[in-house]
């Protein structure tokens, strides 16, 4: 593994009105690393990812992704990463293939190459046979696999995964991680992920940052974190470092909306 820093974050801060969701955090990610960004609910993980991926403007601090600044050079940064969001982001009214095609065109991948890669990626995530089905007929796991395939279509240098395995069965989780680890090895893609499954993080991460209440409270390899906290597993270490309290959060309007959708059933 080389020493080149592909993500550099210095004193990054994000406020929602008076509330500091991300409070002066700094960290670095090396090229080719599998970097775990862990923390309790509401710690600020997704907010950080949104700033790294040009969706939110920071209130302070500096970010470099592959040597470019998301605030001043958003399009250059956008070309360099792929992302799987915490919440679904597929168009349910389109087929799997159309979702991929849409992505490929937005990232200006030339047609022959695009067709070839879409086929390749859909085969990897085992959705090629169902490419012409509408996404709304897919199960949660199939949608997640499709999102991962889509995030990789343009061969990004960095892949952001915000709870990629949320709500998936162990088989699918394993399967997805195996693909990601292969890609990381073969194509030297840097992986920046969050998860609440500590065994998962312990198994795959080269390096971990733990964030709590908007601040980074620990950094290191899984082994280092365990010995620092004198814990047997990463899960123990995590609980020792972040405490036993359950985080209370106010639901954002968009969350309320999503909740309503879940309650009344997601189909239109």
């Amino acid at each position: 593994m080389n020493n080149e820093k592909i993500i550099q974050v210095k004193s990054l801060t994000k406020k929602y009105r008076d509330f500091k969701a991300v409070d002066d955090i700094s960290f670095e990610v090396r090229k080719g690393q599998i970097f775990g960004f862990l923390g309790p609910n509401g710690a600020g993980k997704s907010t950080t990812i949104k700033m790294l991926t040009t969706l939110l403007h920071p209130n302070g601090g500096e970010i470099m992704i592959d040597g470019k600044n998301p605030v001043s050079q958003p399009d250059a940064v956008r070309k360099a990463f792929g992302i799987v969001f915490q919440d679904p982001s597929l168009d349910d009214e389109l087929t799997a293939w159309e979702n991929m095609e849409f992505h490929g065109v937005l990232y200006s991948i030339p047609k022959p190459l695009r067709r070839q890669r879409i086929e390749h990626m859909l085969k990897i995530v085992e959705l090629w046979e169902r490419k012409d089905e509408l996404v709304k007929r897919f199960s949660g796991g199939m949608k997640r696999r499709l999102e991962i395939a889509r995030g990789l279509l343009h061969h990004p240098k960095v892949l952001f995964l915000d709870e990629p395995t949320l709500g998936l069965d162990p088989q699918t989780r394993n399967n997805i991680w195996n693909h990601i680890i292969d890609l990381n090895k073969e194509e030297d893609i840097t992986v920046f992920f969050t998860t609440h499954y500590m065994e998962e993080a312990e198994k795959v991460a080269d390096y971990i940052c733990i964030i709590d209440l908007g601040k980074i409270i620990a950094k290191g390899s899984p082994g280092e974190l365990k010995s620092k906290a004198k814990a047997r597993s990463l899960e123990d270490a995590f609980i020792k470092l972040t405490g036993k309290n359950i985080r209370e959060e106010e639901a954002k309007p968009i969350d309320k909306l999503r909740m309503r959708r879940r309650v009344f059933g997601g189909r239109r």
Binding site: T53, T54, L55, D75, A76, R78, K79, F81, I83, F85, D87, P88, S89, L90, D91, D92, H103, L106, Y107, S108, R150, I254, L257, R258, R261
Partner: peptide, 16 residues
């Protein structure tokens, strides 16, 4: 698109 999340997909794309 905001609610179902698809807007994010278009907003992270390198397109004006």
């Amino acid at each position: 698109d905001k609610e179902f999340g698809f807007l994010k997909e278009t907003l992270v794309a390198p397109v004006s």
